[in-house]
Each structure stands twice: as structure tokens, then as C-alpha cells.
Write a protein that binds this DNA or RNA. Structure first.
Lengths: 108, 108
DNA sequence: CCATCATTCATCCGTATGGTTGAATATACC
DNA sequence: GGTATATTCAACCATACGGATGAATGATGG
């Protein structure tokens, strides 16, 4: 996809179970790339790519310390996305309810 | 992506501005495919494909009425995703806060 | 009946994604 | 200095995505 907004990046980054698992792991604190990759079946390189996607979405920050790259969770984009989602859900639910009300008034 | 869970479908369906706009439109009530497609620059066929993605995610229901297909918004998957997102955000924020607390106790 | 309208199906194209493997780079350690 | 370690880069592959266009299907309406 040609992605435009931060929301696009956040949602498409989250739409993958491997990446969500990586985030869960990082909630346990700063972790090296190899250590992050350890529990997954796929190659280290594949995990490295997933990490890059998470960085692009701003969900992960990288701190290079010698030859090790330490990864940390950044919740800011998740907060934004979560707020967006709940707002839309509520707004749309309200609109649908309004429509329903009007329909029931017309056919009582 | 090889998608597995409903959450995967929901999030990747939402990670596209055109599809989010379609949902917004459907919040105004049942709408025919052509009518949904009208405000977009792209072809009707392209919009039709987006609609199929939204259906696969369960966000849109289709009711065929003669030659017209009426599309309706279904908020259930959005509720699930919204709940998931807020739960994870809160959980991960709490874990990070706990880690921070421990670090500050060790270096006072 | 026949033309029109609503929609999908089929095909094609360019690009992105998720994965692999092998090489390159850079730091750490003895 | 030389070897092992951590990580990325580069190339490749299969498949999916987002879009276009043209044909097919199916219902409507005069």
C-alpha cells in the first residue's frame, strides 16, 4: 500500500501477529535484536525486517550501544490509534442509532 | 500477508484511508455500491475490491436487492479491535511504568 | 424483447510484503 | 591482530495488494 498517514503505518504494523508479539516482548523492557528474535521460528533477518516496520510506525525506538541494538517500546502511536478507533466506533455507533430511531418513528 | 486471526483482518482492513472513508460513508446508512464509490477518484472496480476486503474483515455486510447490493456497516469487529488495542496499551504502559519504578529504586 | 444499469469476474500491471540465504560491516574479546 | 559476535545489506522468490480495463452476468424498465 502507498501509505500516507501515521495511522496507516500504525494499523498496518499492528496487523501482523509476529509484530504484535514483538511489541509484547518489548513491554518487558529494552531488548537486543537477537534476544527479540529468539522465540520466533523464522530467521533473525525476518525478525529484523519486522522490527524495521515497527520503527517506521514509530512503535519501536532503537538505541545503538556498541554492536548491540537495544529496542524499546514507544506507546505514543498506539495511544493515537486507540483513541482514533474508539472515537470512530462511538461516532459511527451513534449515527447508526440515530438512523434506527428515525426508521422506527416512521414505522410505529 | 497470510492472515490468521480476525484481529489481523480488522486491522489490515482499517489500515487504508479509502477503506476508512468507505466505513464513514456507511455510517450514514445502507448504501449501494455505486453510491459508495461515487466520491472516490478511483474506478468503481477498485472500490468494489475495497468493499470485499471490508466484508472479509466483517466490517461490512451486503444485502442483495435485485441488481443493487446494499452495504451496511457492522461495528462488531471494530469493537473487538478497539477493546484489544486499549487493553494492550494499558497493559504495556503499566509494565513500562513498573520497570521504570524498579530502575529508579536502584539508582536513587 | 431489447437496451440500460448495477455489479462482479477475469486479466494484467507495478509495487509491496514476508520470507530465505549469503555477504558485508562493525564492535568485542583474547 | 585475528576471531567471534551482532546486526544489517543485498539479492532473490512467491505471493498479495491496489489499481486499471474489458467482458460477463443479471435485473429493470420501456
Amino acid at each position: 500500500m502507498v501509505e500516507y498517514t501515521p495511522l496507516d503505518h500504525t494499523l498496518s504494523a499492528l496487523a501482523d501477529p509476529t509484530r504484535r508479539a514483538i511489541l509484547g516482548r518489548l513491554a518487558g523492557g529494552e531488548t537486543r535484536v537477537t534476544e527479540v528474535a529468539e522465540p520466533f521460528e523464522m530467521s533473525l533477518n525476518a525478525v529484523s525486517k519486522h522490527i524495521r516496520v515497527l520503527e517506521r510506525a514509530g512503535l519501536v525506538r532503537r538505541r545503538v550501544h556498541g554492536r548491540e541494538h537495544l529496542l524499546a517500546l514507544d506507546l505514543a502511536p498506539l495511544e493515537t490509534a486507540s483513541r482514533w478507533m474508539e472515537e470512530q466506533r462511538a461516532l459511527w455507533a451513534w449515527r447508526l442509532a440515530e438512523l434506527d430511531k428515525i426508521l422506527k418513528e416512521k414505522k410505529p
